Amino acid sequence: MEYRKNRKGEPISILGYGCMRFSTNVRGIDIDKAEKEIMKAYEMGVNYFDTAYVYSGSEAALGEILERNGIREKVNIATKLPQYLVGSRAALDKYFEEELKRLRTTYVDYYLMHHMTAMNQWDKLEKVGIRDWIEEKKKSGQIRNIGFSYHGNTEDFIGILDSYDWDFCQIQYNYVDEHTQAGKRGLDHAAEKGIPVVIMEPLRGGKLVNLLPQKAKDLIAEAPTGYTPAEYGLRWLWNQPEVTCVLSGMNSIEMVEENCRIASNAEAGSFTEEDFAVIEKVKEIIRETELVGCTGCRYCMPCPKGVDIPALFRSYNLTALEGKFEARFGYAQTVGLKKDPAFATQCIECGKCEQHCPQNIPIRKMIKEADKVVRPLPYKIGINVVRKFMLRK
């Protein structure tokens, strides 16, 4: 197992165990199966285990397994505050104490503000005293490293990152999402500040394995390296020294063994020109399924009325690659929950975006078509309801 360092110089396994996707049975999480998988990962060198308050049964299962096997002090637990449910200082203690009980521990190694999507969420937490609360918990030793997980645009990610002295952060990042959400620019900004970055959705929930176009699967199968689609995705990430740890939701012994094998020799800078060429060809094949030829260059931005054109087109294209539900949900969480709306319905058809588009996309026409697909009436209603709940002062 390869290891990289946190800000204190402590080793973190480059492969982390994502505990959101434990196998279940009629009673809930299949604790015996999860225990075998977690212990296999531990034996193979994994020392970072990621869970969250809202992962049903996950914290309790992880806590039971670590206690039963006497390895709590030998691993790092990462869990998350449901910041979207917090409305007072008392709520901070309520959720944190409940998590400690579930995890059967007196401290959390890596504690995150969960699912940040916009700068206003951090502003809200500041109003309830999050800075003093974090300082108290770190001083007492109950929290050893503080961070946040993020789903939103690059600008707000950088804004949150610069607003506090974070110990680490967690972002969605893979070769398809290289220039979306926090993206490469966000990853590099964190690295410049010396902040470790944990990666979630390295394979987009397995979609960069199971839902790749057949043409892409054939291309990978013919490559001389013998890498699987998953191995290409993971090695692409670990090739970047700015990446500290990559989370994988492993739910079989075979998957644990395979991922640990890859992580045993995945050094930064080891990706070859041939490897990069394969990834680029796979991305080209994926783009062949796209409904609009947007490259995400953002030359069309900023829109005078705030429409996030690249984010809309990306979600529109994902309806063809991954399915409408996933694309709509992703759009809802990354764009729909921003403090200032960024929807296509705000367009006044000034045409400035089209003047700068290198792909000559008829943007004014296409954003209307895309919005109908990505944000149909039920989703418009749902987004508005959630916005009122999550963005309330």
Score class of each variant (00 low, 15 high):
residue 35 E to F: 07
residue 93 D to E: 15
residue 300 C to S: 13
residue 109 D to V: 08
residue 40 K to W: 02
residue 357 C to R: 11
residue 58 S to V: 07
residue 375 R to L: 12
residue 281 K to F: 11
residue 117 T to V: 04
residue 204 R to V: 10
residue 317 N to S: 07
residue 239 N to A: 03
residue 77 I to P: 00
residue 138 K to P: 02
residue 168 F to K: 01
residue 119 M to C: 10
residue 164 Y to C: 09
residue 263 A to C: 12
residue 54 V to P: 06
residue 27 R to S: 11
residue 30 D to C: 07
residue 350 C to S: 11
residue 171 I to F: 11
residue 196 P to T: 06
residue 347 C to E: 06
residue 6 N to V: 01
residue 166 W to K: 14
residue 46 V to L: 06
residue 276 F to L: 11
residue 68 R to N: 14
residue 8 K to D: 15
residue 43 E to G: 13
residue 15 L to A: 04
residue 377 L to E: 15
residue 335 V to I: 14
residue 137 K to E: 07
residue 369 E to W: 01
residue 127 K to D: 13
residue 322 E to I: 03
residue 101 K to L: 10
residue 140 S to R: 03
residue 34 A to P: 05
residue 225 T to E: 14
residue 252 S to K: 11
residue 77 I to K: 04
residue 162 D to P: 02
residue 128 V to G: 05
residue 300 C to T: 08
residue 49 F to G: 01
residue 70 G to D: 05
residue 95 Y to L: 09
residue 20 M to L: 08
residue 267 E to R: 14
residue 77 I to F: 05
residue 383 I to R: 00
residue 189 H to V: 06
residue 386 V to P: 00
residue 298 R to T: 15
residue 346 Q to M: 13
residue 111 Y to T: 01
residue 224 P to H: 07
residue 197 V to A: 09
residue 18 G to S: 03
residue 208 L to S: 03
residue 392 R to N: 14
residue 157 F to M: 07
residue 149 S to N: 02
residue 192 E to I: 07
residue 125 L to F: 07
residue 60 A to V: 04
residue 359 Q to G: 10
residue 86 V to R: 02
residue 21 R to F: 02
residue 374 V to R: 02
residue 137 K to V: 10
residue 7 R to V: 06
residue 155 E to Y: 08
residue 372 K to E: 15
residue 287 R to I: 01
residue 345 T to R: 15
residue 79 T to E: 01
residue 147 G to L: 05
residue 259 N to S: 12
residue 167 D to K: 04
residue 325 F to M: 14
residue 71 I to P: 03
residue 383 I to L: 02
residue 344 A to T: 05
residue 317 N to L: 01
residue 320 A to H: 14
residue 172 Q to P: 01
residue 45 G to D: 11
residue 216 A to L: 10
residue 91 A to N: 14
residue 70 G to F: 05
residue 131 R to H: 05
residue 377 L to I: 13
residue 233 G to T: 05
residue 234 L to E: 01
residue 37 E to P: 00
residue 234 L to M: 15
residue 207 K to T: 08
residue 42 Y to W: 08
residue 68 R to Q: 13
residue 27 R to D: 15
residue 272 T to F: 07
residue 316 Y to S: 03
residue 173 Y to Q: 06
residue 128 V to S: 08
residue 74 K to A: 10
residue 177 D to Y: 04
residue 386 V to T: 07
residue 344 A to I: 03
residue 51 T to H: 00
residue 303 C to L: 08
